[in-house]
Every structure is written in structure tokens, then in C-alpha cells.
């Protein structure tokens, strides 16, 4: 049942106007939701792909470091890894996806540095492999960071937009349609009672 409203023509016109705005808003939001879902699908696929790759490479590299530590001893390992073999340089910015500001990280091209920062004589081969793995996974890690964050933000926004779209579609618009129906029925009813009264008056006048 519609809310208690004044059954006047003015109220009817006002509600009709509000309904038109709500329908336009609903259409816009629905379009936004569709486009965001499309973008989200692209990002989430990439996210899953990268996450699997990165998890696998990192776990492998860490297991290799553990092996190297077992072979060389903790202090020798720490000493070997004291100096970084590369500098993780990247530039960060933001970009706008459907008016959500998401991170955008780009790996900088860097000049080749010595691939292994320690003496090869006393170090384990596991460590070499782990260090090189780590170096190669860095660009992917940075891409993962920006993609994963984008997915977090997009999923939040998508949920919010979905709620708004549903609220408009199933609550506000339905309610306003009911109100319009209620007012127009009431007005028609008044019209009819007016007509009957006139007819009655006319009959009475004829009789006189």
C-alpha cells in the first residue's frame, strides 16, 4: 500500500516527476554497475592468474632459501644476502575506473646490476636459484599489488552500487508507482461522485 499522501493533482504531478527522475537514475546506476562488473571481471581474472604464479614462485624460492640455510648456516646466509642485488624501483600513480581512484604501479626499467651479490665459492646453489627467482618475480609482485588492491576497491563499490540499484528498482520505484495509482484512483472516484451528484441534481430540477 502506498504511503498516506494527499490525493491532489499537484501531488500526482510531483510524484510523476520524481518517478521519472528515479527511473533515469536507476538506468544510469544499472549501466554503471554493468560496466564496473565488466572491468572487475578483467581484473579479477588477472588477479587470480598472478596470485597463483606469485604464490608458487615465492614458496619455491623460500623453500630454496631454507635449503641454502641448512647447507651454509644462518650467519653465512645472512652475510651473503646483506647487500641487495637489485633495487626495487617502481613508480606509483592512481587511475580512475568508473570514478573510483585505484592504484597504478609501474615497474621502472632499471639497468642490469650484478645478478648475484655474493661470492659463489661459499654459497649454496639453492641460494643462487632463490635470488634469481626473487628478482624475476618482482615485476609480477608489483603488478599483483595494484591489481589486487583494484579488485578490493571495485568489489566494495560494486556491492554498494548493486544495493542502490536494487533499492531504486524494488523499493522506491515500486512505491511511487503505487502512490500514483492510488492518487489517480482517488481522483477518478471523486470525479465519479461529482458526476452522480450533478445527475441527481439535474433529475431533481426536472421533477420540479
Amino acid at each position: 500500500m502506498a504511503k498516506r499522501v494527499n490525493s491532489t493533482r499537484m501531488e500526482l504531478t510531483r510524484t510523476k516527476k520524481r518517478l521519472a527522475t528515479a527511473i533515469r537514475g536507476h538506468k544510469l546506476l544499472k549501466d554503471k554497475q554493468d560496466e564496473m562488473a565488466r572491468q572487475f571481471m578483467i581484473y579479477i581474472r588477472r588477479n587470480r592468474e598472478l596470485r597463483r604464479e606469485v604464490d608458487e614462485i615465492l614458496s619455491r624460492a623460500m623453500a630454496k632459501t631454507a635449503m641454502a640455510e641448512a647447507e651454509m648456516g644462518t650467519s653465512a646466509l645472512n652475510e651473503a644476502l646483506l647487500v641487495p642485488s637489485a633495487s626495487a624501483k617502481a613508480e606509483y600513480d592512481t587511475k580512475n575506473i568508473m570514478s573510483i581512484i585505484v592504484p597504478d604501479i609501474k615497474k621502472k626499467d632499471e639497468k642490469e646490476t650484478a645478478s648475484l651479490p655474493y661470492s659463489l665459492i661459499f654459497s649454496s646453489e639453492y641460494l643462487d636459484s632463490a635470488t634469481l627467482d626473487m628478482k624475476s618475480v618482482m615485476p609480477k609482485l608489483l603488478e599483483l599489488a595494484s591489481v589486487e588492491k583494484t579488485c578490493d576497491m571495485l568489489s566494495d563499490e560494486l556491492e554498494r552500487t548493486r544495493r542502490r540499484v536494487n533499492a531504486l528498482e524494488y523499493v522506491l520505484i515500486t512505491e511511487m508507482k503505487d502512490t500514483i495509482k492510488y492518487i489517480s484512483m482517488k481522483l477518478e472516484d471523486n470525479e465519479r461522485s461529482n458526476l452522480t451528484r450533478l445527475m441527481k441534481v439535474k433529475d431533481m430540477m426536472k421533477e420540479e
Partner: peptide, 20 residues
């Protein structure tokens, strides 16, 4: 310039140190 850091137990983050 992005500033990157890693937090965790020593054995897990030591490799990140080598990557700068």
C-alpha cells in the same frame, strides 16, 4: 617513486631484502 616494504618472519622476508 614507490616505496616498497615486506613484513614477516626473518626467514620469509630475507629474500625480499636481496630484491631491494
Amino acid at each position: 617513486e614507490t616505496k616498497i616494504a615486506a613484513v614477516g618472519d626473518r626467514a620469509s622476508v630475507i629474500l625480499f631484502h636481496t630484491a631491494g
